[in-house]
């Protein structure tokens, strides 16, 4: 079992921290720059498009234009501080609250990345993610104190969150266009949909069989995600006996799995507009490796 107080170098959760801090600051910055927030996060009396839902912004008087602007400013500033690791726990708390206060306001005006952001930020709050690659950590070093370590249990929770997300979305994909015995045409149709694609993609028609292959591979990839946490666990306990553990540890399953995921998310990002989803998900990939593994890998690559 995972001892809840077991510590490890903070490098893995620190990478997750940087990814989420930058992605959220960038996302809120775009909402601000385009003015889209005036339509999405304002009530109809203030120029918004639809009636809003209740969120923690109600604690400060509701989504008035001034309040929404203040929470967005707080979100952007705390996102940047969080990525830099400046006053990390405070920035983390402010960012998680801002995200919860804003993203639930507009009915239908969001996506699964809203939930992913919320879930991950609250776990990071208790992870010790400011212990590496942060201004806080640099200050500790300057003060002659040892680097702060992170809770390994938090990283395992983040890895589990990634698997829950992938596997759950795979079980939602029951359309006849997704399943291997079906038409495997979902990718073709998604890429033709004006709501989601970045640019017109009917030019893909001669490559239709490739989109079918992509559909099948995506479905298999997502369904195989539970093996990711199993592989990480077998890697973590590789000193123990067992045939299955030995087989898993002959090749590190995490590497091909995450490499496929990286390609998939880069292609999604290039062709579709789905918000911060890909950045969030790729950020979580760091949680599939222990802080020790990441630190070792980076130290090995550092020139002498």
């Amino acid at each position: 079992m995972i001892p809840w107080d077991r510590r490890e170098p903070a490098h893995a959760v620190a990478l997750v921290r940087v990814a989420f801090g930058l992605a959220i600051a960038g996302h809120l910055g775009r909402m601000w720059a385009t003015g889209a927030w005036r339509w999405i996060w304002q009530g109809t009396a203030d120029g918004g498009l639809v009636s809003l839902l209740h969120t923690p912004i109600g604690w400060i008087g509701g989504p008035t234009p001034g309040n929404v602007e203040a929470v967005m400013a707080l979100g952007i500033a705390s996102g940047l501080c969080f990525a830099l690791g400046l006053l990390t726990p405070l920035a983390n708390l402010a960012l998680a609250w801002s995200w919860a206060a804003l993203t639930g306001l507009g009915p239908n005006a969001g996506g699964s990345y809203d939930y992913l952001g919320g879930a991950v930020l609250w776990v990071l709050l208790f992870s010790g993610c400011g212990g590496a690659w942060s201004i806080d950590a640099a200050i500790r070093v300057r003060l002659g104190r040892p680097p702060a370590e992170a809770y390994a249990a938090a990283r395992w929770l983040l890895c589990w969150q990634l698997v829950v997300m992938y596997d759950s979305t795979a079980w939602h994909k029951l359309s006849s266009g997704w399943v291997p015995w079906g038409s495997l045409d979902v990718l073709w149709y998604v890429l033709q949909q004006p709501t989601w694609h970045r640019f017109e993609m009917s030019w893909l028609a001669p490559l239709y069989p490739l989109t079918q292959l992509g559909t099948l591979m995506t479905w298999c990839f997502e369904h195989s995600s539970p093996l990711l946490v199993l592989a990480a666990w077998f890697r973590h306990t590789r000193a123990r006996a067992g045939w299955l553990r030995a087989q898993f540890n002959r090749v590190d399953f995490r590497l091909p799995f995450l490499a496929f995921g990286l390609v998939l998310h880069v292609l999604i990002e290039v062709t579709l507009e789905v918000g911060s989803f890909s950045l969030f998900t790729l950020g979580l990939y760091a949680a599939c490796f222990s802080g020790e593994e990441l630190r070792r890998a980076l130290t090995r690559r550092r020139p002498a």
């Binding site: 209740h54 969120t55 923690p56 998680a96 995200w99 919860a100 993203t103 639930g104 996506g111 699964s112 809203d114 939930y115 952001g117 919320g118 879930a119 609250w122 829950v164 997300m165 759950s168 979305t169 939602h172 994909k173 029951l174 359309s175 006849s176 266009g177 997704w178 045409d185 979902v186 073709w188 149709y189 998604v190 033709q192 949909q193 004006p194 709501t195 989803f277």
Partner: peptide, 21 residues
Amino acid sequence: DATGTRQGWNMFVGAHRFPTR
């Protein structure tokens, strides 16, 4: 509600063959 930590992963569940513009 306070934390916004719901789990909802119904992403691209099918091919929308009759989309709207």
